[in-house]
Design a binder for these strands. Structure first.
Lengths: 193, 193
DNA sequence: GCATCAATCTTTACACTGTCAAGTTTCGAG
DNA sequence: CTCGAAACTTGACAGTGTAAAGATTGATGC
């Protein structure tokens, strides 16, 4: 049995299997043993790569957050101005989760929003979507020669973030029809004046 | 053993025990068997009152949502105008969950936002906080003699709801300090013009 | 006052879960 | 070639939700 030991890249395989399970049968069916079975490996094998179920889940979250980030980055790179970038980031933020409500539930239904963000931690430095929002906002201030205090900036950023996140949350958790014409419901433009 | 059968009001006792467990050791420790044990009842007793663990959880959520509602109703009853009521509802919405982030996680971290709201269901009629928001918004339109189309109204309501919910979500899930001066961060006023 | 019945609760059992401890295989450094 | 560490297996355990079957109770009709 040369197959059974030293799988090759089991760590990544476990993460991929986790994503697959979530896609096919929802987060509630995500178990260590099923993930291991999908990789044709014994039920305790994951413990060689993750100390916990939690640690595997966080790794999967980081993976999904990666996909989410490429959506946000696309908005930034394709926008002609920083202001448009902010608006489009909001749109893509909601659009990503409207297409994948299961991902929303998975990412934001645990103890911590994502592995990067933990109560008391320095989320501002570590959580990629937040970093991108912050940078884009700064660029927006510079382009339009707007000067705001540190505190005003924090408030602005939080408003931008929470309006998109709130809409995504309601769309994903309540079955409200945001998928149709949801673009009108993004309040980013209003918040920027 | 006259004590062991016919508990009296086991259904409510189970709900209360569930709330107690969530308060003391978090949602992750909420199990049917612990709830039953707290009521000094066998581990299968809950099945006389709830068909599922899910059904018990939904009952607990409805109970907590009740407490949440009294907070929102207070904002409405104490406000001098409908416009102020809308603003204060937003404040109290966030304030409630800032004080009890565990409640936010519990209410909005499951399959369905609350028992009342289920994908495809008529959430508009059944979810008390939403009904209250809708009524107050209508009063606001009437008081200020504003006329808006059905669709514009839906968009407005969704913006109001999502801005408060988004801020609460970020406050509860990410450890961002919204507790201090969070009142400045409510965008309700801006959204009303 | 008594039998009966449905509701309520207990007991037992099962499959599934996360986790740990101990053993087995394999790779690679010395 | 050896041998230690890393990767994986096997076996076990407590805790979970749930179903089936039996026990107890209060209420109802006679």
């Amino acid at each position: 049995m040369s197959d059974h030991y030293h799988h090759g890249n089991l760590r990544q395989a476990l993460i991929d299997a986790g994503v697959k399970i979530i896609n096919e049968s929802g987060e509630e069916n995500l178990s260590l043993r099923k993930v291991a079975a999908l990789c044709e490996v014994s039920h305790a094998a994951p413990y060689s790569h993750f100390k916990d179920k939690e640690e595997l889940v966080e790794a999967i979250k980081a993976h999904v957050t990666g996909q989410f980030m490429t959506e946000l980055e696309k908005a930034v790179s394709e926008a002609s101005s920083a202001e448009k970038a902010l608006v489009d980031m909001g749109r893509n933020y909601v659009a990503f989760f409207v297409r994948r409500p299961d991902y929303f539930k998975f990412l934001f239904s645990g103890q911590n929003i994502v592995a990067h963000i933990q109560p008391g931690k320095d989320y501002e430095e570590d959580y990629p979507p937040f970093v991108l929002l912050k940078e884009t906002y700064q660029k927006y201030l510079a382009e339009n020669k707007i000067s705001r205090t540190k505190e005003e900036q924090e408030v602005d950023i939080l408003k931008l973030w929470s309006s998109a996140h709130g809409l995504a949350s309601i769309a994903c958790m309540s079955g409200v029809e945001v998928s149709f014409d949801w673009e009108k419901k993004i309040a980013t433009e209003e918040l920027l004046r």
